[in-house]
């Protein structure tokens, strides 16, 4: 099976600090891969290197045939096909919910406004926020903001979705509404790479779980294998700590 995301030898230096140390991994089409690990383990840096928000010091990233880390490739074209959801939502506060979602389809994909809005309404329907179309981001709860952010990413019809700790900035009672949307997305066969602390989500949705520590992949496997019988001591210690 061809790989949708292929990372080879990813290394990232922040001054003296090695945030990523020769990391290699793949995500197959339709697969949901959850990356876990203590803070500072490099998991967010790894995720952000997939759409080159983080420029690697060394190593390569491919998405299908597109060589992300090659500076000659058209990174904008690649990013159009990679949706990203951030910890802090990053909705555009000066645009309404609907405008947030249609911005990129209209400006980047050059979709006619009516078509972009119809598509946006479909997505809002899907995340259960159709009635919020004309609201300002400031008027939404955290969970609602994140669901709009997911809809905004999906509006570009990406073939890959990246989630960077999507529930970490949420009040506990709002975590589920976001995870439910993500779970449904995974079930529909979206290719997803998710950095999260939500072990429940990993168990329910992940095809594979990757444990990272100190810029390296320590262990990977099915959720069942990794959670129930971790092979590495560090994995076991982290899981004992968090579960």
């Amino acid at each position: 099976m061809p790989d949708r995301i292929r990372i080879e030898g990813a290394t990232k230096l922040f001054g003296e600090l090695k945030a990523l140390n020769n990391v290699s991994m793949v995500v197959h089409p339709g697969e949901t891969v959850v990356v876990i690990g203590p803070s500072g383990s490099g998991k967010s840096t790894l995720l952000r290197s997939v759409n080159r928000l983080e420029v690697l010091s060394a190593g390569d990233v491919w998405i299908d045939e597109d060589h992300v880390t090659n500076h000659a490739s058209d990174i904008r074209k690649i990013r159009e096909e990679v949706g990203m959801v951030f910890q802090n939502f990053n909705l555009f506060p000066h645009l309404t919910v609907l405008q947030n979602i249609t911005l990129s389809p209209i400006n980047v994909k050059k979709l006619p406004k009516a078509k972009a809005e119809a598509k946006a309404m479909e997505l809002l329907e899907r995340v259960g926020l159709a009635e919020k179309r004309d609201a300002w981001p400031e008027q939404l709860s955290g969970g609602q903001k994140q669901r709009v952010a997911i809809a905004r990413a999906l509006a570009m019809e990406p073939k890959v979705m990246l989630f960077d700790e999507p529930t970490s900035a949420l009040d506990p009672e709002m975590v589920k509404e976001v995870l439910d949307v993500m779970l449904a997305l995974a079930k529909e066969g979206m290719t997803m790479m998710v950095v999260t602390h939500e072990m429940g989500f990993a168990k329910a949705a992940a095809d594979r779980v990757i444990f990272m520590d100190q810029g390296e992949i320590i262990e990977e496997g099915t959720p069942k294998a990794l959670f129930d019988s971790p092979k590495n001591e560090r994995t076991a210690k982290f899981l004992a700590h968090i579960l």
Partner: peptide, 24 residues
């Protein structure tokens, strides 16, 4: 994060500056 979100959506840096950053 505003610039990052705009770039992640496929906007160019100058598009992001004019449609996202400058209005704010």
């Amino acid at each position: 994060g505003q610039m990052e979100a705009a770039l992640a959506l496929g906007l160019s840096r100058s598009q992001a500056i004019w449609t996202i950053i400058i209005p704010q």
